[in-house]
């Protein structure tokens, strides 16, 4: 009976230990997707709402934050640049929408055009998209075209000769890759939005590289600063595993040993023998 109770307690304990990493995972998933408050971007964004302008090269890229939709009015053939911060462990998704016309009245007739959304990291290295329609051709007289790029998970450390995505600034470049000469200079409106979800430490690597943001570029950082480099949900997983091991060890030990024999201390003292035969040979 006591054994059974102990076993039940151990199981409960194990279950609690199991729940801890799960909770940690949920917390980690929730943290990065929380939209940070817009950081001051030196007037390029203004203090009221998301930016309504885009830069025209890496140096003038307009800083945006994750979760806000930046818009811009431009002419076909322009190269539009934005820059967004991405932190360790985030899976960043960038979406861009190109709407033809200046927004007032109907869009002028236009031919087919191909649009592309490129993502560059803080070192201006082009980043591949894991999936998503990064390049798309809009049919003649289409209303709009939508582009998506899912980036690889941002890591805290990478070899110097790899171009793995590191935490820091990410440049978004939106442009018409192919456009007929007649359409060059025609107005269009663009909207971009970067969002991210967490990975619960799946790609938590050791080491940490300083955020890849150039001092000469727009200063971008997540709303609540760069995440610390000492935390990863892996702490919870490993601690939870350790607790589970202890619980399993205790339960198995109890099971294998069987019920504890009554301690000698609590036994009634042995009654003195009534008669000791005299030693042999005496």
């Amino acid at each position: 009976m006591r054994t059974a109770r102990r076993l039940a307690a151990a199981l409960l304990f194990a279950a609690t230990a199991l729940a801890v990493p799960a909770a940690g995972q949920a917390a980690a998933d929730a943290t990065p997707s929380a939209t940070p408050t817009p950081t001051a971007t030196d007037g390029s964004a203004g203090d009221d709402g998301p930016p309504t302008e885009a830069g025209t090269n890496f140096r003038t890229a307009v800083a945006i934050t994750q979760g806000e939709q930046a818009t811009a009015a431009a002419s076909a053939g322009d190269y539009l640049y934005w820059v967004v911060p991405a932190d360790t462990g985030q899976n960043v998704t960038v979406e861009a929408t190109v709407t033809f016309g200046s927004g007032t009245g109907t869009a002028a007739a236009h031919g087919a055009s191909t649009w592309q959304l490129d993502v560059y990291d803080g070192l201006r290295r082009r980043q591949p998209c894991r999936y998503g329609a990064q390049t798309r051709t809009a049919a003649a007289n289409a209303q709009s075209v939508q582009l998506v790029c899912h980036l690889r998970t941002v890591r805290a450390w990478a070899d110097t000769w790899s171009n793995d995505p590191l935490r820091g600034a990410y440049y978004l470049r939106l442009t018409a890759l192919e456009v007929t000469d007649a359409d060059l200079g025609q107005p269009f409106r663009a909207a971009v939005e970067a969002t991210s979800d967490g990975t619960a430490g799946r790609d938590a690597v050791d080491g940490s590289v300083a955020p890849v943001v150039s001092r000469t570029a727009p200063d971008v950082r997540p709303g609540d600063g760069w995440a610390g480099t000492w935390w990863s949900p892996r702490w919870l997983w490993t601690t939870g595993g350790g607790l589970l091991a202890v619980a399993a060890a205790l339960a198995a030990h109890r099971l294998a040993r069987g019920p504890i024999a009554r301690s000698y201390r609590h036994r009634p003292p042995e009654p003195p023998r009534p008669h000791e035969p005299p030693p042999y040979g005496s």
């Binding site: 399993a248 060890a249 030990h253």
Partner: peptide, 10 residues
């Protein structure tokens, strides 16, 4: 942990 517990138990 379980195996270690069993061994020590035995």
């Amino acid at each position: 942990g379980g195996i270690a517990g069993l061994l020590t138990g035995w």
